[in-house]
């Protein structure tokens, strides 16, 4: 029983972070109709940005988080404006190919720049934990999860309540009408891609605190983000939170009862199951 409880707590803490990881991918996918295969590489870059601000400048990782996100926003914005915009109207295969190429370039640039060594963002309180109802809760994991959920809710509010948020949703839903009412799709796309990259950067910073960074983490994080986006759907950040929590819980339960080596089998098993049973996503509308 205690073990189950601990497993649930671990799964939720992991799932919160997973939600933030997938959020940018789902947003870009929903608005630009691009599955960004370099999304995991953005997460990796965010992790390194935060790592160097911490180890080089001594900035607390949670303080470095906003700067990391800002840097990734600019990076994503420029990348979309000057490179991805060139193929935005092309069939999905072309955008997959392009973002795959970007992923490769970023991964191996990172290997040259940062070396292939494992890095961890390791503040003085990294080992701090407390016990709650019998479950051990590492402090940094709790903070990371809380920040992840808070950022997801912020995005939801931004999309729901602001003029630009409305324009982003409108562009996703009906490009023709959005243009008719004065929306300039190119800037909306760049803005959206920038936000997606910023969210990836934030997720990377948190990932570096709770886990280990190396230049190759991107591929598996892109894959996990993809699974979460499929489960949660592309329509609402709230669906992505649910998708992230589901994946976190499934992985945690699998490593507890089946074995840690089987977590990927379980998460991709869910992907297949969802695609077969509910191709619109667990929370997607069927129409």
């Amino acid at each position: 029983m205690d073990l189950l409880w601990q497993g649930l707590v671990n799964g939720i803490l992991l799932g919160g972070l997973y939600s933030l990881m997938a959020l940018g991918l789902a947003l870009v996918w929903g608005v630009l109709n691009i599955v960004n295969l370099a999304h995991g590489a953005f997460i990796m870059l965010g992790g390194y940005a935060c790592y160097y601000m911490f180890s080089g400048l001594g900035i607390d990782p949670f303080v470095a988080l906003p700067a990391t996100m800002a840097a990734l926003f600019v990076f994503g914005y420029l990348l979309q404006r000057h490179l991805i915009n060139l193929v935005i109207r092309a069939p999905m295969f072309n955008t997959l190919l392009l973002t795959f190429g970007i992923d490769v370039v970023l991964t191996y640039s990172a290997q040259i720049a940062f070396s292939a060594d494992f890095r961890t963002i390791n503040p003085s309180y990294a080992g701090a934990h407390f016990t709650w109802l019998g479950a051990t809760i590492p402090l940094v994991r709790l903070i990371a999860c809380a920040i992840a959920i808070a950022l997801t809710l912020l995005l939801w509010l931004f999309l729901a309540r602001t003029r630009l948020g409305r324009a982003i949703r409108a562009t996703a839903q009906n490009l023709v009408a959005a243009r008719l009412y004065g929306v300039e799709p190119r800037s909306i796309y760049a803005l959206t891609f920038g936000i997606g990259a910023a969210l990836a950067g934030g997720a990377g910073a948190l990932y570096g605190v709770v886990s280990q960074l190396n230049p190759y983490i991107g591929v598996s994080l892109t894959a996990k983000s993809f699974v979460i986006a499929i489960i949660g759907g592309l329509e609402s950040p709230l669906g992505v939170i649910a998708g992230g929590l589901i994946l976190g819980l499934v992985e945690s339960m699998t490593s507890l009862y089946v074995g840690a080596t089987y977590t990927d089998v379980a998460s991709f098993g869910i992907l297949v199951l969802v695609l077969v049973v509910r191709p619109t996503g667990l929370f997607g509308r069927t129409t």
Binding site: R166, A167, Q173, N174, A177, A178, G182
Partner: peptide
């Protein structure tokens, strides 16, 4: 050409985007 998955009010506000 409405924004089908947006509320009526949000649709009207899109008219005022500019």
């Amino acid at each position: 050409q409405l924004f089908g998955q947006m509320t009526v009010q949000d649709n009207l506000l899109m008219g005022a985007y500019r």
